[in-house]
Design a protein around this nucleic acid. Structure first.
Lengths: 123, 123
DNA sequence: AGCGGGCTTCTACGTTTCGTAGAAATGATT
DNA sequence: AATCATTTCTACGAAACGTAGAAGCCCGCT
């Protein structure tokens, strides 16, 4: 469950997260070729990676149209929040972790956190 | 930098994090043998893992006394808070991540966070 | 219905990381 | 110097990932 992403897997997810629309493997291959200077994976490579990401639950595939369509299962933000909770959840001393976490955020973000906690409290 | 730990590496770190004192590889081997039912690694295995952890910056080694002494570089809590910051730092939309993060914590922890942010503000 | 070509799945190999530990080197102690 | 504890070197198997060719599948066209 504490799945980690490889480098190409991560790049693919970045594109899927950045796009509201579902994409085809061909779209992704082209984006990858354009973005990564030294790398331009074959279409089969992209499809393999997409299958793996599907198995890991990161990607949802639509088999209805013929070049299959892929989309991120959760938003990038959801995923990251989930990761943070995963870390926190594995701690024995959660308050100590939170204490250090809060101690290190910028004042700007501290203010944001206060706001978020405020609006959360009367709901 | 975003280093991930293997299973044995993690077990070793657990013991080091749990102990205030520095430990020898022999100590660790014994603890591992006692804790893990099916596993009891050779001393060389433990030493290999400790070297790798040292290279990764998780462990600090004292070569002064002859059975070398090992200690965790950072506390478990520091490490976890750091991990959380690492995740957050890699986000393009930090506030969106924080929003989801805060939205999912328990009321108890929300209260704790409010406190921490409070005491932080008049530091 | 058969065929051809795009699309997908299967299979496979190289690399890296980690668990594992013997062999070799080092160094202290008598 | 010889011996024994300790450390370092070297190596191999397994799993995850990047990589992509080979084989199979599906659909429109004639």
């Amino acid at each position: 469950m504490a799945t980690t992403l490889g480098e190409l897997e991560r790049s693919v997810m970045e594109f899927l997260w950045a796009s509201d629309e579902a994409m085809t493997a061909y779209d992704l291959r082209d984006r990858l070729a354009a973005a990564e200077v030294d790398r331009s994976p074959a279409i089969t490579t992209v499809l393999t990676v997409l299958s793996r990401l599907e198995n890991k639950g990161f990607v949802q595939r639509q088999r209805t149209s013929r070049p299959h369509l892929y989309r991120a299962q959760a938003s990038r933000e959801d995923h990251m929040a989930e990761l943070m909770h995963e870390v926190l959840g594995s701690a024995t001393n959660r308050s100590a972790v939170l204490e250090r976490f809060v101690g290190q955020v910028s004042e700007r973000e501290a203010a944001l956190l206060r706001e978020l906690l405020e609006s959360r409290s009367h709901r």
